[in-house]
């Protein structure tokens, strides 16, 4: 049973990745570089996996962990978006997002432990 589920998941993931890489994507984002567009869509797929864990996680700690990983992925989003659009301030968003994500994870950890915020 486990082997069958593993095989189905493998086929699904490989077909999704192949569809993103080899099919011509309708140009939603008007960028010159085709490679960066495909890279960006694979990162969006990773973000969808994280959102699946946020949706299905059995405990609150699972959801918090998935949100932490999603926060780190968004730094990667901002770094890649900066290359083709030529806007330099995307990396500023990345630095600010890293700070904000770290602080919010500290607050969530204290909340999950059952302590108050001023201890």
């Amino acid at each position: 049973m486990r082997k069958i589920r593993w095989f189905l998941g493998l086929v699904g993931i490989i077909s999704t990745l192949a569809a993103v890489i080899f099919l011509p994507i309708p140009s939603l984002l008007a960028w010159q570089s085709v490679y960066l567009e495909k890279i960006f869509f694979i990162l969006v797929f990773c973000g969808l996996l994280c959102l699946w864990r946020v949706l299905m996680g059995p405990t609150p700690a699972d959801r918090a962990a998935a949100l932490d990983i999603l926060g780190i992925l968004i730094i990667g989003f901002c770094a890649i978006l900066g290359i083709p659009t030529g806007r330099d301030w995307y990396i500023d968003i990345a630095i600010a997002w890293a700070l904000q994500s770290f602080i919010s994870m500290l607050a969530l950890g204290k909340y999950l432990e059952g302590r108050h915020f001023d201890e």
Binding site: D68, L108, E113
Partner: peptide
């Protein structure tokens, strides 16, 4: 996150 999960 790991420590708070263990404590909760």
């Amino acid at each position: 996150l790991a420590r708070s999960a263990h404590k909760s």
